[in-house]
Design a protein around this nucleic acid. Structure first.
Lengths: 145, 145
DNA sequence: GGATTTTGTTATCAAATGATAAGTAAATGG
DNA sequence: CCATTTACTTATCATTTGATAACAAAATCC
């Protein structure tokens, strides 16, 4: 296996994913939410409940900034903090009802846009796509530490 | 095919790619280059030569901001503008020698990090990965218009 | 050939983001 | 039980980024 070729492909691939995702999420961001806040909401939606430290780690932002942005999101009633009863230093964050609604809508828009992208794909293509994502997710783009 | 399940998987997958790429590029950014500038350099490196308008479109930033950031990169001697002889409104941008060097180094670091991720992968895994990227790149994450 | 469109520039402003210092409270670890 | 570490907060500041207006020059379009 030619490693250089693989790396070039990986770089081109991640760039393409990045760009397509950017296009997908253009214009769907709920009113009054900044890009960083949207990305935090997405992470919370997928991984909730999470602690502030986890958000800080995974989104690679400092704790003070994480705290500030989560506070804004809580002020906007899109998520809620609650204490970990077994360790009172920790605070978990989860989406509020409104937050769930907002993210469902956002994901719905993204889904619709993917659908137009996939409209020419056959059933067999779709199964290949699912399999391809499984492969890459487990072998390359895993996020455990 | 259950579409909702596919969309959920797509969202989780793009989020994972995004996060891993973020990790990969942590700390490798050349001195004195901002995230947006790095992302422009990456695009130029892969697609050069490109016009300012193309950068503006693909990176989804306004022309004034594109112009400003490219100017900064030219001031830093990382890229160069030159005229399109057939249309004197247009300006092409390409990496300078130093820019090529800097990006080669950055890509090298990313490659090394991918290598540690892939160290447990068998030859068969690698071939599956290549195929999976081909499938997704062509069927889902294509970027032509 | 004059209006319009395309391509890019400069200037300016506001908002978002990142970084740092200093502090609190709870848990952990000799 | 006292020192240290962990989890988070508040405040502040500089930088980056995004947005807009106003402009110029070349190409295109009737």
């Amino acid at each position: 296996m030619d490693e250089n070729k693989l790396f070039d492909q990986l770089i081109a691939f991640t760039a393409a994913v990045h760009q397509v995702k950017h296009e997908m999420t253009q214009g769907i961001k709920p009113e009054g939410i900044t890009p960083v806040q949207y990305s935090m909401l997405e992470y919370i939606a997928v991984s909730q409940p999470v602690t502030l430290s986890q958000i800080s780690d995974c989104q690679q932002m400092s704790m003070p900034n994480t705290s500030r942005e989560i506070k804004k999101l809580c002020d906007k009633q899109l998520c809620e903090k609650y204490d970990d009863p077994s360790d009172r230093r920790k605070q978990y964050v989860r989406l509020s009802g409104e937050g769930e609604r907002v993210m469902q809508e956002a994901f719905g828009h993204i889904g619709a846009r993917f659908l137009t992208r996939l409209q020419d794909a056959s059933e067999k293509d779709l199964q290949e796509i699912v399999h391809a994502m499984d492969v890459l997710h487990s072998l390359v783009f895993y996020t455990d530490k």
